[in-house]
Write a protein that binds this DNA or RNA. Structure first.
Lengths: 192, 192
DNA sequence: CCTGATCCATACGCCACCGTATGGTCATAC
DNA sequence: GTATGACCATACGGTGGCGTATGGATCAGG
């Protein structure tokens, strides 16, 4: 939670902390004073690195967009086989909540999706992810319409899975059950 | 938004307004004074009907649980054919956001799912909905394991669909596309 | 060492919301 | 008609977060 015993903070420290707060308590938790306390500092430090709360929010959102979408796509794109890419991606994003990367920010942000700073980032991320899924299904040989429909199902299943895993982790398959579930989902998405 | 020209308010008026606020702006929007203003009243009225903000929240959550889960289940259960029930249910909950009943409260509440008043209601609703899906697939002849897996896919697809429809309605199929999408989803869920 | 720049703490005013206290209004019972 | 109780407005103190101002600390270069 805290940053050990560092005396001087950097702007990045604040955006990381803000992103954690965002994942934990939603947009309302991105509050200067609580985050300062959590970092062992005060507002005086914050207002040196950022002009105001919105600037922090903006930086945190951009960082989220970068880390949690673009980096994952470049990671997955390393594999040359489209079927492998699809399987790897689903296996990654349908991870059990015990593993970290269920995208909690996407969920907590949903409540404030109409916020002027959130909306554009949100729209870009959604569009990018859906387009990538469509690209994957197209590479697997599906015609445009079918590829789009399947990408929709894949992405909504991911979102719902993240939602469920985040609020009722005990209802989400784990271990061998999870493997079976992912396998059957991949099969469902790739056949006919 | 407002309640026209009624002079006296009832407790139900407040819970309805609270539920609207919840769907619009999340848990933080369930604030006494703004809702009072929205109802054309003041706090003095509110604290006559409720002991405090938590009481209002609790009432609103119970009402949501009742209207948005139990009533839908009893509505669907009127049909004797399990396949029809499944189709009707999916057709209802995968409605286009232009139609009302996409469950926005479920989404905005997600951000504060760990709130002491929200968590139990949330857990009950999730469990109830998943159990009902499982019950449907069992009635359709699936063995327990498969029924559970399919209920999981159906419910997560619904959640993700609601999420997507709420934040990027233009990316969700409408009209004839929607019918095709629901049809293909029903087919996918009911075969093998 | 001294100085300037960087980084941060403290103190302040502001606003939004919670909850309380108190008194006013209005309908109905009698 | 007036008394009672249901219903509501106003005014108040308390809290927590935002943003500003100002000065203290710390470090690098000369």
């Amino acid at each position: 939670m805290d940053v050990a015993e560092r005396k001087r903070l950097t702007a990045r420290d604040w955006t990381v902390a803000a992103l954690n707060a965002l994942a934990e308590g939603g947009l309302a938790a991105v509050a200067v004073e609580p985050i300062a306390a959590c970092l062992g500092a005060t507002k005086g430090s914050f207002y040196w690195h950022f002009s105001n709360r919105n600037a922090l929010l903006e930086a945190a959102l951009l960082q989220w967009e970068q880390v949690n979408t673009e980096e994952i796509i470049t990671l997955i794109d390393a594999d040359p086989d489209p079927h492998s890419r699809l399987r790897n991606l689903l296996n990654l994003i349908l991870a059990h909540p015990a593993d970290p990367p269920v995208d909690r920010v996407m969920l907590t942000l949903q409540a404030d999706a109409s916020h002027p700073l959130v909306a554009p980032v949100f729209a870009r991320v959604t569009r990018r992810r859906l387009d990538y899924f469509t690209e994957l299904f197209t590479a697997c040989g599906f015609p445009p319409g079918a590829a789009h429909r399947r990408s929709l199902l894949a992405y909504t299943a991911f979102l719902g899975h993240a939602h469920l895993a985040s609020t009722s982790p005990e209802l989400v398959p784990a271990g061998a059950d999870r493997r079976d579930y992912v396998d059957s989902l991949v099969t469902t998405l790739v056949t006919p």
